[in-house]
Design a binder for these strands. Structure first.
Lengths: 209, 209
DNA sequence: TCGTTGTACTTGACACTGTCAAGTTGTACG
DNA sequence: CGTACAACTTGACAGTGTCAAGTACAACGA
């Protein structure tokens, strides 16, 4: 079969990947089948194996892509208009909502394994490093490295928990009548960043404007 | 076949459920197969369907059990020895680590559906109600209901994020040398509850204790 | 005592899945 | 011209979720 112009040599990998991401976005990672992916990409059921080895391989690549692009999102955070913490929360949540397919996979050690796939682990590390840099911008560079780690872990937990509960969890079902989900999300983000600023100030660290 | 004394009438449901939870705990929800569950429970491959309808049915029941027992864990929180927020964080994390099988399923809308299974939704509601009660104990009962919701959502995000990152996520891989995971976890919990107390105090709400 | 009804399963079948093994095709290079 | 390799395809197999149909047995009304 002659390949269509849009699927020239080397595109198959990307086609397969995009098909997989689309499925995960709409149906969840659970119901991703290699054969369905292949079908949507218009290739044989075994082609994806050529590029990704096995099912977990495709998840690992998606996870890696996700962490890289999360790191990029952190790097792009614009802190001129609002406190760094707030900007970070928003960036994290936006990432999760915009790249839901990636996000759903990134933290699923059972299916792709930060512990088993080295490239994924490296990408995850670089995202965490960006987060640590952000912490320094929140607290000032004089912070003790151990405290910086704790602070980063706390920020990550808060962002991650919110994002998870918003995109998959029961939170959207529970918003009280009279308020919208978006309102509630910004209320939580405002509360969180205010709280973080208080903590940074009380620690004697410079709250960055 | 005459049933063994340990598997009398009605036990099959529980046997199946426990087998499923054990598999999820050790292998993750992804690799739970109805047939393997049936095999471990010593019944035919179709017996689980009698009780749970389909694969998502078994997840829904596990999820429901999980939310009920999370609500119970909130109710049992002992706030005499430490601030309510800290006790809550510890309770949440302990729950996630002790009932990992349940926890992994509870927030997986794609496989069991708080939105699709009513009993699960009810159980999730009751857990969230307990959390709101806890918020009132942290902030005092005079808090505006909308603010209470926001506060609860923030606490939930923080707890949930931490628990998720600890049991499945990349956080344990990233602890700096010279500190243990447990040390880092309590540092994050201490930081978080301190921060929450600051926020409650600043809001003019009574910090309990 | 007999037929009916309902529960708690079991057996059988089907389409579908992940993955191993073995082709096939084209392209690059010596 | 040969051969090596990448980029696939085709075929097969065991295992999967689930529908459909059966079986065993207790409870109950006539």
């Amino acid at each position: 079969m002659v390949p269509a112009p849009s699927e020239q040599h080397g595109d198959v990998r990307r086609l397969v990947l995009d098909a997989a991401i689309a499925i995960i976005e709409s149906e969840g990672a659970e119901s991703l089948s290699m054969r369905e992916v292949a079908r949507r990409a218009g290739v044989s059921h075994q082609a994806p194996y050529h590029y990704f080895g096995d099912r977990s391989g495709i998840f690992a690549v998606i996870s890696e892509e996700g962490f890289s692009s999360l790191a990029q999102a952190f790097r792009n955070v614009d802190e001129t208009e609002m406190p760094a913490a707030k900007a970070g929360f928003i960036a994290y949540l936006n990432f999760a909502r915009k790249h839901t397919g990636h996000f759903r996979v990134m933290f699923r050690n059972d299916i792709c394994g930060v512990t088993t796939h080295d490239l994924t682990a490296v990408a995850a590390d670089s995202a965490f490093d960006e987060l640590r840099l952000m912490v320094e911008r929140i607290t000032g560079p004089s912070i003790d490295p151990k405290d910086a780690f704790t602070f980063a872990a706390m920020l990550w937990s808060l962002s991650h928990g919110l994002a998870t509960l918003v995109i998959d969890g029961p939170l959207p079902n529970k918003i009280p009548p009279g308020t919208s989900l978006e309102d509630q999300i910004s209320a939580v983000i405002d509360l969180s960043s205010h709280m973080v600023a208080l903590e940074a100030a009380e620690k004697g660290l410079l709250p960055r404007q």
